[in-house]
Nucleic acid binder design. Structure first.
Length: 678
RNA sequence: GCCGAAGUAGCUCAGCUGGUUAGAGCACGCGCUUCAUAAGCGCGGUGUCGACGGUUCAAGUCCGUCCUUCGGCACCA
C-alpha cells in the first residue's frame, strides 16, 4: 500500500545564510523524504523562507533597503545552498506570499469563529519619530530599581531586576534616540487553554511525539493553565495585516508555521494538485521535522491552530538536537561556525550527508561534528568500503557485461535483500545511524567476498574468463545493492552507479534481484577522499577575529553582532560620566555550586577597597584563571541583592550577535586598580 | 534547586519485552594481499556495562538511592 506523505522542515529565517547547523535538519528531512519516494510512497517535501518580523524590518532599515529586497536576496541564497547540498524540495515558497496570507486569514477566521480570539490592551512604548512600537529590546533607559543607565526594556543587566519597558526611567528608542511615548495598543490573543484537553490528548497519545518530548510538555506547559498567546503586533510591522483589524499584523510566529500550508497551496496551484487531499485528508500523513528549540510552537500552538481550522494534524513531529562542532557550540572565533556556502567552497556535500546520516538517531539528541571522525568515517566507509567495491572489480569487466545467470555467491546477495525490511525500518524511524551501520555491514561482507575470490588472480588465467565475469558480476551487484540502500543519502552516487551499469535505480525493490547481462561501462571515480587540508582551509575561512591578520580582507569583520543589537541612542558626555568605571583586580573568584551561570568575584580597587560582585560568566571562565586579572568594573552601580548575596557592581564584558561567548574587558598593560575609565 | 535525557572498550555508539563466555565501527598492534582512490582481508587485547543496595534461579537489561555529564528552567543573560 502506498502512503501519501507531506514532509516539512522548519522554515529558515530570511535574516541570514544557511549554516551547518541548519543542514542537520534539511539533510535529515531530505534523506527521509527520498527514502519514502524510493520505497514507492508518494511523498512531497515542502519548505519556505520565513520572512516576517521585527528583525527583518530593522535590518532593512540598517541597510537602507526594503524588506522585499532582503527576503528576495536571502531566498535566492538559501535556494542555491539547498540545491547544492542536494536538498530536493518539491516546493520552496515564502511566508510572504498571497497563498500564505490566504491560509493565515482562513485559520484566523476559524479561531475567531470558535471564540478563541481575545483582545486586551497592552501598554507599550512607541517611538514617535520612527513611528513604531518598540519591542523590549529596542528601548533603553535607567533601571527602575538601581538606576543603572542604558538598560534594556525587559531587565537590568546590572542589578538583575526584571520589569516592563514602561517602567524604565528616561527611556529612549534605540532606533531613533527619540523619547518614546507610552501608548496603549490593543493586542489580539489566542486562548489556547480552551484546547487544553485536546492538547493533552494529542501530545500524550504516544503516536506523534517522542516520550521525552511528551513528558517535557506535560511537566512544563500542560501541568498548568496555558497562557494566552499574543499573536498580533501593531503597525508598522513587516507581515500580514489582520483582516478587519486595521493596523494590526500577525506576529511572525503565527504566520511562519502556516507557511507549510501556504507553500503547499502554492505548489498545488503550480502542479494542479488537489489541496484538500494534502492538508485535509486522513489519507495523507503530515510529518514535521524541527529542532528542539521550537518544540512548543509545533506541539502546542500549531496543533491548536490546525484543529481549529480543520486541517490535518501532524502524524508525527520529528525533533532533532543541535549541532556541535568539536564538542562545542559553533563558534565564529574558532572557525566552527561554518556557512553552507563555505563548506561547499571546500568540500563535497556527499561527505556531510553521509556523516550526518551516520550520526543521526531517532532521539532528539545533540549531534557532534568531529572533524577527525568526519574524515575517517567518510574515507573508510564510503571510499574504502563502498566505492572501492566497484573500483576494484569494474575494470575487469569494462566493455564486457555482467553474467547472464547470477552466479552462486554463497547467499550474499539474498542476504543483502533480506535486510530490506530492517534497513527500511531504520530509515522509517529516522534511525539513520542504524541504517548506515547495517549497510556498511553489507559492504564489509562484499569486500571479504572479493578478497576471497581474488579476481585479479583469476584474470591471469585466460581459460577462467567466465569465472572472472562471475566474480565481478557478484561484486558489482553487491555494490549496486548497497548503493540502492544508500540512494536517499547519496543521490549522486546512485546516478554514478546507474551510469556504470546503465540501468536506473527506480526503487528500493531493486535490492531484490541482481542485474544480469548488462553492459559494464568505464569506471570513473565516484568520490574523492576527504582531504584534511581542505577541512582545515574551511575552518580557517570560517574563522573570525583573533586569527593572524594577513590581508586587508582579514580586517573585514562580520557585522552580525552589530545587526543583532543596533547601536544605542546618542547620549551626552554627562550621561557617560554618570557611569563610573574603574580598573579592578580580581583577588578572588569562586564558582557558586548551586548557580549555573554565576561566579562570585572579589575585586580590589586598590588599597583596602574590596567589592563582591556576582558575574554571569561561569560558562566562559574558570575561577582560578581569573584570579589576579585586571578587569573593568562599573563601580557606582547600585548594589543588588541577588539570590546568592549582595552584588556591588558589575564586570564589563563583551558579548553579542549569534557568536557565543562572553569576554571580559581588560585594560592594557600598565593600568592599575582604581584608575577610572574615561 | 526543579524538569528531562544520558552514563557500556582510547573515541562514536549498538545491545528489543531480563537468560549461554557483553558487541560494531574507528583508532591501535601483528600478519597477509597488491585488483582498487596508500584501498582490502585475517588475527588480537583491554571493558568491576557510573556507584551502592534490592527483586530474581538469572540483570547493562527491572526497582530504589546516590554520583557525574548534557540540555531546558530558575538565580541570569
Amino acid at each position: 500500500m502506498t502512503r501519501r506523505l507531506l514532509v516539512t522542515s522548519a522554515l529558515p529565517y530570511a535574516n541570514g545564510p544557511i549554516h551547518l547547523g541548519h543542514l542537520v535538519e534539511y539533510i535529515q528531512t531530505d534523506i527521509w523524504a527520498r527514502f519514502q519516494r524510493l520505497r514507492g510512497n508518494r511523498c512531497i517535501y515542502i519548505c519556505a523562507d520565513d520572512t516576517h518580523g521585527t528583525a527583518i524590518m530593522i535590518r532593512a532599515r540598517l541597510e537602507r533597503t526594503s524588506e522585499l529586497d532582503i527576503i528576495a536576496q536571502m531566498a535566492a541564497a538559501h535556494g542555491r545552498d539547498f540545491a547544492d547540498f542536494g536538498i530536493a524540495f518539491d516546493h520552496y515558497g515564502s511566508t510572504h506570499s498571497e497563498h500564505n496570507r490566504a491560509v493565515c486569514n482562513e485559520i484566523w477566521a476559524a479561531l475567531k469563529a470558535e471564540g478563541a480570539v481575545e483582545r486586551r490592551n497592552v501598554e507599550q512604548l512607541y517611538d514617535p519619530q520612527a513611528q513604531t512600537f518598540l519591542a523590549d529590546r529596542f528601548v533603553i533607559g535607567e533601571c527602575p530599581k538601581c538606576g543603572s543607565p542604558n538598560q534594556y526594556g525587559d531587565s537590568c543587566d546590572k542589578c538583575g531586576a526584571t520589569y516592563s519597558p514602561t517602567d524604565l526611567k528616561n527611556p529612549k528608542s534605540t532606533l531613533s534616540g527619540a523619547v518614546p511615548e507610552l501608548r496603549s495598543a490593543e493586542h489580539l490573543f489566542i486562548n489556547v487553554e480552551k484546547q487544553h484537553d485536546f492538547l493533552d490528548a494529542w501530545t500524550q497519545s504516544g503516536e506523534h511525539l517522542e516520550p521525552s518530548i511528551a513528558n517535557y510538555l506535560k511537566g512544563y506547559f500542560l501541568g498548568q493553565p496555558l497562557r494566552d498567546w499574543d499573536i498580533s503586533r501593531p503597525a508598522p510591522y513587516f507581515g500580514f495585516e489582520i483582516p478587519d483589524e486595521p493596523g494590526q499584523f500577525f506576529y511572525v510566529w503565527f504566520d511562519a508555521p502556516i507557511g507549510y500550508i501556504g507553500s503547499t497551496r502554492e505548489w498545488c496551484q503550480i502542479t494542479g494538485e488537489d489541496f484538500d487531499s494534502w492538508w485535509r485528508s486522513s489519507e495523507t500523513e503530515v510529518h514535521h521535522f524541527i529542532g528542539k528549540d521550537i518544540t512548543y510552537f509545533h506541539t502546542l500552538f500549531w496543533p491548536a491552530m490546525l484543529r481549529a481550522a480543520k486541517f490535518s494534524l501532524p502524524s508525527k513531529v520529528h525533533i532533532h538536537g543541535f549541532l556541535t562542532v568539536e564538542g562545542e557550540k559553533m563558534s565564529k572565533s574558532k572557525g566552527t561556525f561554518v556557512m553552507a556556502r563555505t563548506y561547499l567552497d571546500h568540500l563535497d556535500p556527499a561527505y556531510l550527508r553521509y556523516y550526518y546520516a551516520s550520526k543521526l538517531g531517532s532521539r532528539p539528541e545533540d549531534l557532534d561534528l568531529n572533524l577527525d571522525e568526519f574524515e575517517k568515517k567518510v574515507n573508510s566507509d564510503l571510499v574504502g568500503k563502498v566505492v572501492n567495491l566497484a573500483s576494484r572489480t569494474a575494470r575487469f569487466l569494462q566493455g564486457s557485461s555482467l553474467s547472464e545467470v547470477y552466479p552462486n555467491d554463497g547467499g550474499l546477495f539474498a542476504e543483502g535483500a533480506n535486510r530490506k525490511d530492517e534497513i527500511g525500518a531504520a530509515y522509517e524511524n529516522c534511525d539513520l545511524a542504524r541504517a548506515m551501520r547495517l549497510v556498511m555491514a553489507l559492504a564489509d561482507r562484499a569486500n571479504e567476498y572479493v578478497d576471497r575470490l581474488a579476481p585479479w588472480t583469476i584474470k591471469k588465467d585466460p581459460t577462467r574468463a567466465s569465472e572472472l565475469q562471475d566474480v565481478c558480476s557478484v561484486a558489482l551487484n553487491l555494490f549496486r545493492q548497497i548503493v540502492v540502500y544508500l540512494t536517499p543519502v547519496l543521490p549522486r552516487l546512485a546516478k554514478q552507479c546507474e551510469a556504470l551499469l546503465s540501468v536506473p535505480i527506480c526503487g528500493l525493490n531493486e535490492v531484490d534481484a541482481p542485474l544480469l547481462g548488462v553492459k559494464v561501462g568505464a569506471f570513473e571515480h565516484m568520490l574523492t577522499r576527504v582531504d584534511p587540508k581542505k577541512v582545515v582551509a574551511m575552518i580557517e575561512a570560517s574563522r573570525e577575529g583573533e586569527g593572524a591578520v594577513t590581508s586587508p580582507e582579514a580586517n573585514q569583520d562580520d557585522d552580525s553582532a552589530l545587526k543583532a543589537e543596533p547601536i544605542a541612542a546618542t547620549c551626552s558626555i554627562d550621561d557617560f560620566t554618570k557611569i563610573d568605571m574603574r580598573v579592578a583586580r580580581i583577588v578572588n573568584a569562586e564558582a557558586i555550586p548551586e548557580a549555573k551561570k554565576l561566579l562570585k568575584l572579589t575585586l580590589s580597587l586598590g588599597g583596602e577597597s574590596r567589592r563582591t560582585v556576582f558575574a554571569g560568566i561561569k560558562s566562559a571562565y574558570e575561577p582560578a584563571a581569573l584570579i589576579g586579572r585586571l578587569v573593568v568594573v562599573v563601580a557606582n552601580l547600585a548594589p543588588r541583592q541577588m539570590k546568592f548575596g549582595l552584588s556591588e557592581g558589575m564586570i564589563v564584558c563583551a558579548s553579542g550577535g549569534d557568536t557565543d561567548g562572553i569576554f571580559a574587558v581588560a585594560p592594557d598593560t600598565g593600568a592599575t586598580p582604581g584608575m577610572r575609565l574615561r
